[in-house]
């Protein structure tokens, strides 16, 4: 198990390194560098000044050299300064990252509870009225665009009923927990409703498939109660494919979070990424995009661990490779 985790962690680091180069290269290829923006905003700058500034920032060097310099600094924990916000990148990102993670984890939890429970119920009562109802609801959830759902919830709860705030989550740490939670409800509802439908469908399909397996018949032949058959023999096997799908969905959850953040003016990574790219803020854009990659990687990593924990065949296969 440890070996499995270490192997996956090393693979993740390699992916991250490759991604950092790709992202760095892509930003470097974007037309116009920060100095061009400076010139555009400050007509007093001469081309000689521009040359000097480029040399100062090292922008006249070949891209590979610039990348290696950035990488060396980054490995020492220095991710540079955000030009647009005039603050160190890490300091800027810290609280926003926490906000985004809170949003994602809360939404994922709600979506999993709702989705898995609904899927399980539907699988145990196939073709019943409630199964049909769950089916319709999940298809609505799958096909509703996140931004539209956000608008709809805002209309209902903020404008018509006036019970929940539509936007303006305070950034400061001094805000009370209750106030923060009130601001979280609508974004979390949006994001979790958008993914719960998918989870429901996966769970239903996986459970029905599992209940058709031979070992379920064996459990029944042993005289196991229906409860025991479903929970002890069915659920764990059904979760194995569901976990994979959720992991693959993690990227979608992240991008969903970015859209939701924008809709509710929620101060998270989404807004930071948007601002950084619009302002051609090299350092900030790089780090935020790498965080996006990292989130997806961590999601997959967690899924792999969950997978290995659920399915003894996985971790052991990897363990044997080492001998």
């Amino acid at each position: 198990m440890t070996r499995f985790a270490v192997t996956r962690a090393i693979e993740g680091l390699i992916v991250l390194l490759v991604m950092s180069f790709v992202v760095y290269g892509l930003i470097g290829l974007m037309p116009g560098d920060p100095i061009d923006l400076m010139i555009a905003s400050n007509p007093k700058l001469t081309s000689a000044d521009a040359q000097r500034l480029r040399a100062l920032y090292g922008l006249d060097r070949p891209i590979l050299e610039r990348y290696l310099n950035w990488l060396t600094a980054a490995l020492q924990g220095d991710f540079g300064y955000s030009r647009a916000f005039a603050r160190p990148v890490l300091e800027l990102i810290g609280p926003r990252l926490v906000n985004t993670l809170v949003l994602m984890v809360a939404s994922l939890t709600v979506a999993l509870i709702v989705g898995l429970a609904a899927g399980l119920y539907a699988a145990l009562h196939p073709r019943s009225l409630i199964d049909d109802l769950i089916g319709y609801l999940s298809f609505i959830s799958i096909s509703t665009p996140t931004f539209w759902l956000a608008l709809l919830l805002m209309m209902l709860f903020s404008v018509v009923l006036g019970v929940l705030p539509a936007s303006g989550m305070p950034v400061g740490a001094d805000t009370g927990l209750g106030e923060r939670l009130r601001h979280l409800i609508l974004p979390v509802a949006t994001l979790s409703l958008a993914s719960a439908g998918g989870y429901t469908r996966y769970m239903r399909a996986a459970m029905i498939e599992t209940l058709g397996q031979d070992f379920i018949r064996t459990a029944r032949a042993k005289g196991a109660s229906e409860m025991r058959v479903v929970l002890r023999h069915g659920l764990r096997n059904a979760l194995i494919p569901v976990i994979t799908v959720i992991a693959l969905d993690f990227g979608a959850l992240f991008s969903g979070a970015l859209i939701t953040e924008t809709m509710f003016a929620y101060p998270g990574m989404g807004k930071a990424i948007y601002d950084a790219i619009m302002a051609n803020d090299f350092n900030l854009a790089l780090v935020t995009l790498l965080f996006a990659t990292l989130t997806t990687l961590v999601g997959n990593f967690a899924a792999d661990l969950g997978y290995a924990w659920l399915d003894p065949r996985i971790s052991l296969a990897a363990g044997r490779a080492g001998t």
Binding site: T7, R8, E11, A318, A321, G322
Partner: peptide, 9 residues
């Protein structure tokens, strides 16, 4: 084995 073939097959 894995993507980067860590560990001998």
């Amino acid at each position: 084995r894995s993507l980067f073939r860590l560990g001998r097959g």
